[in-house]
Design a binder for these strands. Structure first.
Lengths: 348, 348
DNA sequence: GTGAAAGCGCTAACAC
DNA sequence: GTGTTAGCGCTTTCAC
């Protein structure tokens, strides 16, 4: 049914390799045979089989991307990366791990079995044996968002300066006159969570402010976590007063806002807030929300380019023993979009 | 470097086929050899090569998905589909065509070359020769969002009842007392655009309202299109008055809202508005925006299930001559989320 | 229970 | 310029 090189060869009366050369435009072929072959190929709608090519070349021209949740902002990352990869002739095998370490693990294995030429991983896990197969055979892996706890030789990543992100939020609050600043942060097990907490502490200390552990709530980066943490902070507000809260992820920001609204409190009059990755496309949200943002599209294109470089280098060195010298951490600066929500409003 | 069946066979002293059987758990194998083989496989971190399997089996366990823009709401579609496909052992080859017909075309070909087992396509194009290769070899293709102009035998799709969507918007406006209702619609060349216009006309006529062509603006589904159309409507407002506008896509809704805000007009007092797929996760937008929505997560899981069925059927029939009888259009109902933006406010 | 052999569709080294 | 051949890693039929 499907035409292949062999059939074209038979029909055109030349050998398979000649047909292959014509199709790929390689080597010297007489115009006559070239045309004859092309004509037959066209007539029978020949389409090269990349699976066979991949097997032969040990190269699939496919990049694996695994993210915990395609929503929020990762899709912007993927879009930027896709555009680079398309130019370079690569396509994307995408997986949404659903914040589930087991699922993530399964995808890591699956993508290796499918022989992706490289992997981009935003992990939610703290055990990463499955990655060993990549490291062993030097299939490049680049981490985004979270940097897992692995052999530093493989710490190739493009991540945000999370500590700085938090410090920027604290700075903005302090500039307004806030001194009692709460934080709703994510899971400490993930580097994104831990670093954002560290940045908070450092930021507070940098301004000579005392840190009240009761004002530090650990969410799980989910909407509900943000909501619950905010509720708790508000409940204890008499005992542990605060005028401002920094919420360190998008989903948690949504949750926190919901909790505040539910309590009938006004931003920034009753509580000032700085969110994370909270971009308002509509311009309709009032008050405008001050937010830390990561340059996610940049991250997408930087990761994509970096991965392509790694792939090319690997091909050139043939023996990939030198990965150690190649791994590099690329750390990008966050930005802050100042809005009305972080203002300090005096009086009750 | 990489271990394969052959090496395991050599090391274990049995044949390649035996090793294959052990790895796949097929056929009768003595416990002794089974354990011997498994031990060696484990020791050397054997990972089966799916590329080779795919070549042999003519099946990649991969589904192609092409969307014009992963943003907006398609990512929700992908998430829902991914979850179904994962269960079934399929992974997703994702492409963002960037609203670009040429790029879309390239991806359609590429995915065929990579031998995806099925394709989900949200097309922006009006020529679809590239799809012929799928139809010829009966690789199932399911359309979402837009239904292209093709042989009805291949019109397999899961789409929104776009006409009904518009009619629902008109109904909501009329119920409030609006009679001068403008529409900002998308490209007429795409079925989504055309049907939403038809629904508007039908809806207006159904209420005995006269249709003023000057109040019908054609955007291109983009933010800027929505913005420009809204600007134009507002400019001619003296000559062609209207109290309400229905904007028939998410991005155009954003643009229209921006234009209204820029002119310093109030919703719904100066202009009432109904948007499309305009979901406010934050609950912070005021006034709340009335919007038509499509059940995009449903679409994702329905398409995925449907595609898996098509794939299975194709495998069973072996000869795919019966596709005609299989193609089916699944048309889903839109919903309307009523907010404040569509109210009728009397007086100037 | 196990092995030999053919073949999926392609590329590339080597011959002529 | 063109053909022959081996082989990528796997599955599966057919023998024994």
């Amino acid at each position: 049914m499907e035409y292949n090189l062999k059939k074209i060869a038979e029909e055109s009366g030349c050998s398979i390799s000649t047909v292959s050369r014509v199709i790929n435009g390689k080597g010297k072929i007489s115009e006559a045979t070239k045309e004859r072959v092309m004509k037959i190929a066209r007539e029978h709608n020949y389409v090269p089989n990349q699976v066979a090519r991949s097997l032969k070349n040990s190269k699939t021209n496919t990049i694996g991307i695994i993210v915990p949740d395609i929503r929020d902002y990762f899709y912007m990352f993927i879009k930027a990366a896709d555009s680079i990869f398309f130019e370079a002739g690569y396509s994307i095998l995408l997986a949404d791990s659903d914040e589930n370490p087991e699922k993530e693990d399964a995808y890591i294995k699956l993508m290796y079995e499918k022989r992706v030429d490289g992997l981009i991983l935003a992990t939610v896990s703290d055990h990463h044996e499955a990655l060993d197969m990549y490291f062993r055979s030097s299939v490049p892996v680049i981490f985004i968002d979270n940097l897992p706890n692995i052999n530093p030789a493989y710490e190739d990543c493009v991540i945000l300066d999370n500590s700085r992100a938090s410090a920027m939020a604290i700075d903005a609050f302090v500039k307004e006159g806030h001194t009692d600043i709460a934080i709703i942060s994510g899971n400490e097990r993930e580097t994104t969570g831990m670093e954002r907490i560290q940045g908070y502490i450092r930021g507070m200390e940098g301004h000579g402010l005392t840190i009240n552990p009761k004002l530090m709530k650990m969410g799980n980066f989910q909407e509900l976590g943000g909501y619950n943490c905010m509720k708790e902070l508000l409940k204890n507000r008499e005992k542990e007063p605060f005028t401002a809260v920094y919420v360190s992820s998008y989903k948690m920001t949504c949750g926190a806002l919901r909790a505040i609204k539910e309590e009938g409190l006004k931003i920034p009059k009753d509580i000032a807030l700085i969110g994370f990755d909270f971009i308002d496309n509509t311009g309709l949200i009032s008050p405008t929300i001050t937010t830390i943002t990561q340059p996610i599209e940049n991250i997408g294109s930087i990761v994509a380019k970096r991965l392509l470089t790694r792939i090319k280098t690997g091909e050139e060195t043939e023996q990939g023993e030198q990965i150690k010298d190649i791994a590099q951490k690329i750390i990008l600066s966050p930005e802050i979009l100042e809005g009305e929500s972080s203002r300090y409003v005096k009086g009750e």
